[in-house]
Design a binder for these strands. Sequence first.
DNA 1: GGACACATCATTGTATACAACTTTGCTCAC
DNA 2: GTGAGCAAAGTTGTATACAATGATGTGTCC
Lengths: 238, 238
Amino acid sequence: MNSSAPSSPRMLGALAASDRVADALSLAIHEHRIAPGTKLGEDEIGEVYGVSRTVVRAALQSLAHIQLVEMQRNRGAFVAQPSQQEAREVFEARELLEPRTAHMAATRATPADVDSLRAHIAEEHAATATWDRGRALHLSGLFHTEIARIAGQTTIAGFIGTLIARSSLIIALYWRRESALCESHAHHALIEAIAAGDGAAAEDLMRSHLVDLHSALDLHQSAAPARSLKEALLSRES
Amino acid sequence: MNSSAPSSPRMLGALAASDRVADALSLAIHEHRIAPGTKLGEDEIGEVYGVSRTVVRAALQSLAHIQLVEMQRNRGAFVAQPSQQEAREVFEARELLEPRTAHMAATRATPADVDSLRAHIAEEHAATATWDRGRALHLSGLFHTEIARIAGQTTIAGFIGTLIARSSLIIALYWRRESALCESHAHHALIEAIAAGDGAAAEDLMRSHLVDLHSALDLHQSAAPARSLKEALLSRES
DNA sequence: GGACACATCATTGTATACAACTTTGCTCAC
DNA sequence: GTGAGCAAAGTTGTATACAATGATGTGTCC
């Protein structure tokens, strides 16, 4: 029962229903407003967005498929907590896919594409300036997604999108560096290479950028190797 | 291909509900028992498997996420029909991911892994011997998935799994070669390289195997570039 | 005869109701 | 005091009911 009835009867323009919830949750996770391990109760979410559990379940299943949330049968949905092994795999996959993709993007980018990337950077700077770390992180991920889109490989772009989503969780769990400013420089250099159409340079810059990111993660500590979900949930700090 | 084990040591009856439907549909599509473009009515499927539309919808959404089916709002779900452009992208992605994966598999494979691959080949031969073309095709895809699993890169293996699923649709639409025997030889050579731990050879064999597959597709015809769904549905031959 | 308009039907989108399972707190025996 | 056992509460899994949208067939008007 939609008490508020904010939905336009028609003119909805095919705007999806459960996708709205999925996008909202995804954004909240990307911006680190929801911590890994947090339980995502169906009734709770449905009440927040004014939809029924049916819609919420569809949204959660969608997020579960890209491994942003983990669904445990008869237990519920939780924000995923990638293990260190999974974190390594995600970044290895990114290091395999993204340099090549950056190369393609550099050879195909139109001036409009370059403008779009510059706009992303500007937003990222603005978020950093206001100390909105979550939003800056989210925009930083979007930058990579945008490059994949420009490369014109829709399929690979989809893969990269899921990898970046998981990277957000990994950063939330294992990030050990303080400042995120270094990324801005890397992104700026990437834009210049793409704007110049220098595929080889873009590929190298992307590779070193990812290696740099990977090295900023603390994936070697042997602590909490197989912590149970219960412990994980109790250990989360809000 | 939701073969993800919920890791329940006992309670085998706790196998998910909608996953059963998704697996059944996925298998039918992989074996070419359902043609691309076929409408997948919710009531119809629910009646077949004795479940409600709720379960069917979850299964269809799962298949839609790996792009095996396409869901059109208020219209229903249809077996996907990858365009020629999408087909090219899928095989380009495979050519990017799988050779490297085969290399890793060769360096990590245990004798048990090799046995598993040989068992796959044996099944494939048996299916070919009985002219069960659909099953042979499905097993041929599983062979690639198994190699990705052996490589130990769960994330990349998941990507390859979705690519192989879509490849099944692409082969149904664009395959132009008669015999599928050539694949058996390629797979056999791959096993030998993996069993010998020769990563470079496995990588090269996989690359040439994929190029061979790609070349067996007819992706250059300009006919039916943007055929409507209705025409597509009417043009299907059962 | 053809085309538009409207009524009817079928199917999907969403909400709600009920069943099954998990968790939790309490009681009772040792 | 501690542990097992049980009952109550809360949450998820599934089915069903209702609402909304798209498809179809018919009738009238040109």
